[in-house]
Design a protein around this nucleic acid. Structure first.
Length: 375
RNA sequence: GGGGAGAUACCAAAGCGGUCAACUGGGGCAGACUGUAAAUCUGUUGGCUGAUGCCUUCGGAGGUUCGAAUCCUCCUCUCCCCA
C-alpha cells in the first residue's frame, strides 16, 4: 500500500510511504543490495542500525542456486533464514539473464541457463520465479524480464520488450492464482523495458501500468547508455506510470543519478555501487568522491566524512581506512561499505526532507555539483 | 684449509652473443566498477620526448666482437658443502 504524502511544486519529485508487512518504507528510498542473503560484509544489526536501511534486496537467481529453494523453505523464508525483520525485495533473476548471457538461452518458455557454480542446466519461467519468490517470502517480488543490453538495435529491443510483456502476463496470472507461503502480503512489481527507444518505452510503460500492480519498476537502464539518455527515458516513462504507485528505478546508481531521478519522479533505488565500489576503495562523501587508495590520503588523519551519516564515517580517519583497504584487510571493505550505504540512506533522507519543506530543486542543484566532484 | 654456486631494475626471479630498457610475480602508482559469477578487474612501474627516437642501465674495472646482461681476465662481495 503506497501513498504519496507531498508532491514537490517545482519538479516531479515526491515523498511518500510504502507500507509492507515488515514495515513502512519512506520514499524516496535507497535499498542496499544483498544478493545472496547478505549485504556483503555488513551485519544485519548495522544495516538496521548505523546505516538506517529500511529495506534490502535479495536475488532469486543466486538464492535459488545457493543455498537452494529447499533450504530457504525449511528455514521458513528468507527473513527468518537471515534474521532480518525489515522488508525485503527480491529481483527475479532477469538481470542475471542479462549479465550472465554467455550461459543462457531465451525462449518463449523462459530463460534457460547454466549455473555459474557447477554448470548444471536450469530454466526460469515467468511462473516459477513467482513460485520461488513466494518461498523466499520477499515483501516485494519482481517479474521475470529481459534486460536488453546497450547498445542494441531497434528490432532486438522491440522483440525483447514484447517477450518481457508476454512473460508479464504469465507472471501476473501466476501471482494472482497463488498465495503467500508465510502469512504476510507480497507485492508484485512489473518492469518497463524498451532500451533507449522512446516509442518502445511508452508502449512498455502503458503495458506495465495496465497490469495494475502495487508498484512499478523501470529496468534496462544504467547498462552503459549516457546518463542523459537515462534521464530522458525516465521522464518519458514516468509520464505514463501512475502517480499513486511507487516507481522503482532498478540498478541505479551514483548519488547524482539518484537526485536526478528523484527530481523526475522516481521513488525507489537499488545499486551495488556503495558496497562494491566501497570494497574497491571508492567512497562517496559530503565533499565528493574519493579513491581512498590514493597516496594523498596516506597521512590524512581527518575523519572519513566529518558530516558522515554513520558512526564509522566520523570515528575512523582516511589514513586508517586507506591502510586497511590497501592492505586488503576485511575491515576496510566493511567500513567503506557501511559509510557508503549510510551516505546513500542519508542522501535520500535529506531528499525527503527537502521535498517536504519545498526546497528540493535548489538543494538538488547544489548537491549534484558537489557529489560529482572527484577529490 | 679443500671444493662448489652466485651477484640482473624497489624486492624476488628469468634471460646466457643481436628480435633486451630486459619474461614473470610481489610491492608501488593510477584507473574502472550502476537490478553483485567482483574483498574483483585493467593499465603503468630507468630518464627525456606528442610519436618515431635518443640517453643511461644487468656487482666493479678492463678486454674480445660489427654488436655483450650474455664470452674472457682481474678485483670486490655473498652463499653452500667437506674438513
Amino acid at each position: 500500500m503506497f501513498s504519496v504524502l507531498i508532491k514537490d511544486k517545482e519538479t516531479k519529485a515526491r515523498t511518500g510511504l510504502l507500507r509492507t508487512a515488515h514495515g513502512d518504507i519512506p520514499t524516496p528510498i535507497f535499498m542496499p543490495v544483498g544478493t545472496g542473503g547478505t549485504v556483503k560484509g555488513i551485519l544485519q544489526r548495522d544495516l538496521a542500525g548505523d546505516i538506517k536501511a529500511k529495506i534490502i534486496l535479495g536475488n532469486t537467481y543466486h538464492l535459488y542456486l545457493r543455498p537452494g529453494t529447499s533450504v530457504i523453505k525449511a528455514a521458513g523464508g528468507l527473513h527468518k533464514f537471515m534474521s532480518w525483520s525489515l522488508p525485503i525485495l527480491t529481483d527475479s533473476g532477469g538481470f542475471q539473464v542479462f549479465s550472465l548471457n554467455s550461459n543462457r538461452k531465451l525462449t518463449e518458455e523462459g530463460a534457460h541457463f547454466k549455473s555459474h557454480i557447477d554448470g548444471s542446466s536450469h530454466l526460469f519461467t515467468p511462473e516459477n520465479v513467482i513460485d520461488i519468490q513466494r518461498i523466499i517470502g520477499a515483501d516485494i517480488i519482481m517479474a521475470l524480464d529481459e534486460c536488453a543490453p546497450f547498445p542494441c538495435d531497434y528490432n532486438y529491443a522491440k522483440e525483447s520488450v514484447a517477450l518481457t510483456h508476454r512473460w508479464l502476463d504469465r507472471g501476473v496470472e501466476r501471482f494472482k492464482t497463488t498465495e503467500p507461503l508465510w502469512g504476510h502480503e507480497q507485492f508484485f512489481f512489473p518492469i518497463v523495458q524498451g532500451g533507449v527507444f522512446d516509442d518502445l518505452r511508452k508502449m512498455s510503460a502503458e503495458k506495465i501500468a495496465e497490469a495494475g500492480m502495487e508498484g512499478n519498476a523501470i529496468g534496462g537502464l544504467s547498462v552503459g547508455e549516457p546518463a542523459e539518455e537515462m534521464y530522458r527515458t525516465i521522464e518519458i516513462v514516468n509520464e505514463i506510470l501512475p502517480e499513486d504507485k511507487p516507481r522503482y528505478l532498478m540498478g541505479v546508481g551514483t548519488p547524482a543519478n539518484l537526485l536526478e531521478a528523484i527530481e523526475r519522479g522516481i521513488d525507489m533505488f537499488d545499486c551495488v555501487m556503495p558496497t562494491r565500489n566501497g570494497r574497491n576503495g571508492m567512497l562517496f562523501t559530503s565533499e565528493g568522491m574519493i579513491n581512498i587508495k590514493n597516496q594523498k590520503w596516506r597521512n590524512d588523519f581527518s575523519s572519513i566524512d566529518p558530516e558522515g551519516a554513520s558512526e564509522v564515517s566520523r570515528n575512523f580517519s582516511k589514513a586508517y581506512l586507506r591502510h586497511l583497504v590497501v592492505s586488503g584487510e576485511i575491515l576496510g571493505g566493511q567500513i567503506s561499505s557501511i559509510h557508503n550505504l549510510a551516505f546513500y540512506l542519508k542522501l535520500v533522507e535529506q531528499a525527503r526532507e527537502k521535498i517536504k519543506d519545498g526546497s528540493f530543486k535548489s538543494w538538488k542543484a547544489v548537491m549534484v555539483k558537489k557529489l560529482s566532484i572527484k577529490l
